[in-house]
C-alpha cells in the first residue's frame, strides 16, 4: 500500500513538475549547450540550447516532492486524478506549442 501511495505521489509530482517547468520556467530553468557541452541557467544568443533535459530534472524533483507530500497521508488516493492530470497536461503542452503550426 505504501509503495502504491509513493507511486501515485511520484507520478503526480513528476507531471506537475514537468508542466510547471515548461510553462513557467519554475522552479529552475536548466539549459544544456551541446556546442560547449556545458550546463547553464541563461540562454546563449544565436546558439541552440537544450531545455528538455532541465525540464526532466524538474520532473524528477517534482516526483521526489510528490512522494514526500503523499508519504504521511493515510486517506485513499484518487487514482482517476492521475490520468485526468496526464490528459490535461498533454493538452496544455500541445496548446503551448501551437506557434510552430502558424507559419
Amino acid at each position: 500500500m505504501t509503495r502504491e501511495r509513493l507511486c501515485w505521489g511520484a507520478s503526480m509530482g513528476a507531471m506537475l513538475g514537468y508542466v510547471l517547468a515548461v510553462l513557467t520556467s519554475y522552479p529552475i530553468r536548466i539549459l544544456y549547450d551541446p556546442h560547449s557541452e556545458s550546463w547553464g541557467l541563461i540562454d546563449i544568443p544565436g546558439q541552440p540550447v537544450i531545455a528538455w533535459y532541465g525540464w526532466l530534472i524538474n520532473a524528477a524533483l517534482g516526483a521526489l516532492l510528490g512522494m514526500l507530500i503523499v508519504w504521511p497521508i493515510r486517506r485513499p488516493l484518487p487514482w482517476a486524478l492521475v490520468w485526468i492530470v496526464a490528459s490535461l497536461a498533454l493538452l496544455a503542452l500541445g496548446v503551448h506549442e501551437r506557434h510552430w503550426f502558424r507559419h
Binding site: C7, W8, S11, A14, A59, A63, W79, V82, A86, L90
Partner: peptide, 17 residues
C-alpha cells in the same frame, strides 16, 4: 518530447495500477 516526458512520469502509477 512532452508526451514522452509525461509518459515517463506516468510509469510509477502505471506499475502500481
Amino acid at each position: 518530447e512532452h508526451a514522452a516526458a509525461l509518459a515517463l512520469a506516468l510509469m510509477p502509477a502505471y506499475w502500481a495500477l
